[in-house]
């Protein structure tokens, strides 16, 4: 299976630089301090934020900043095959670490010394780009919780086939085994495994040096890397526009409910 058809379209009819539909809501739980639900195509994610509150474990208290504690989990029914997914397996610990790293740099952690912010992400339906969707959802939940951040974090995943980058992959595309129809320029193409390179980036808008997270799966040649990162950053910018619209809408709704003056 090739990522792109001969006419340059993807399996689900998108163009290479097109993201999936984003559908999101802020403030879905009343118990949590902040929460959000996000659909990115068929990937559905719930995120909840608790805090800032006093750090639970004394040994983990940081004197000068707050601790960001994340948990990534997948529902048993999230994939086509039902599977019990215990917390703390290798993949989810790795993704948890990525979430923590991302929000450690996005949240103004020095505002809350000796405290802790918990971010929980649950993947309800998995259809590719889980990490990116979780970051987007968590970012909305943090906004809902009113946690000060350097900006709204947005993330996107990007793959590449024959040097042509495609953003926001779905599950079928993520697992695609690609026979290379046209030979790549680089010499190692023949011995490269069929796995496509995938890259997840998280960015803060504004300025050009704003990559918060960069995670590459599978091999890619140095010469292609820049094009892939560039495409992924542009994808994240599209996502950012969607998130911003959602936040504005949410805020204006809240303002109407509270009968604030529209200024």
């Amino acid at each position: 299976m090739d990522l792109l058809s001969e006419h340059g379209y993807r399996q689900d009819g998108r163009k290479p630089n097109q993201i999936r539909n984003i559908n999101c809501r802020l403030g879905v739980y009343s118990q949590a301090d902040g929460s959000a639900y996000l659909e990115q195509g068929n990937t559905k994610v719930l995120a909840a934020v608790y805090g800032p509150h006093e750090a639970k474990q004394r040994s983990r208290i940081l004197e000068d900043q707050c601790l960001i504690n994340c948990q990534y989990s997948m529902a048993t029914f999230s994939t086509s095959e039902r599977k019990y997914r215990p917390r703390g397996d290798r993949k989810s610990t790795e993704l948890t670490r990525h979430l923590e790293k991302t929000f450690n740099s996005a949240v103004l952690t020095t505002m809350y010394p000796r405290s802790q912010i918990d971010i929980f992400c649950e993947v309800l339906q998995s259809d590719g780009g889980n990490l990116a969707a979780c970051i987007n959802a968590a970012s909305l939940a943090l906004v809902d919780a009113g946690v000060p951040m350097r900006g709204i974090v947005s993330a996107a995943i990007c793959g590449a086939t024959d040097g042509q980058p495609c953003i926001d992959l779905n599950a079928a595309e993520e697992s695609a085994n690609i026979p290379r129809l046209t030979p790549c320029i680089d010499l190692n193409a023949a011995e490269e495994s069929a796995n496509i390179p995938r890259l997840t980036v998280a960015t803060l808008p504004g300025g050009d040096d704003d990559l918060l997270l960069l995670e590459l799966d599978h091999r890619v040649h140095h010469d292609q890397l820049e094009a892939i990162i560039d495409a992924a950053v542009k994808g994240a910018a599209q996502v950012h526009a969607c998130l911003q619209t959602a936040i504005r809408k949410h805020v204006s709704e809240v303002a109407t409910c509270l009968q604030w003056e529209n200024s």
Binding site: S105, D209, L214, H221
Partner: peptide, 27 residues
């Protein structure tokens, strides 16, 4: 790896943001 094959790029968490050109230098 050999011949500029990149297997893993991992960056995240805190500090200054990094631009694409800086990343290229690093690779």
């Amino acid at each position: 790896g050999r011949q500029g094959q990149v297997y893993r790029v991992n960056r995240g968490g805190g500090g200054e943001g990094v631009s694409i050109s800086t990343l290229d230098t690093v690779v």
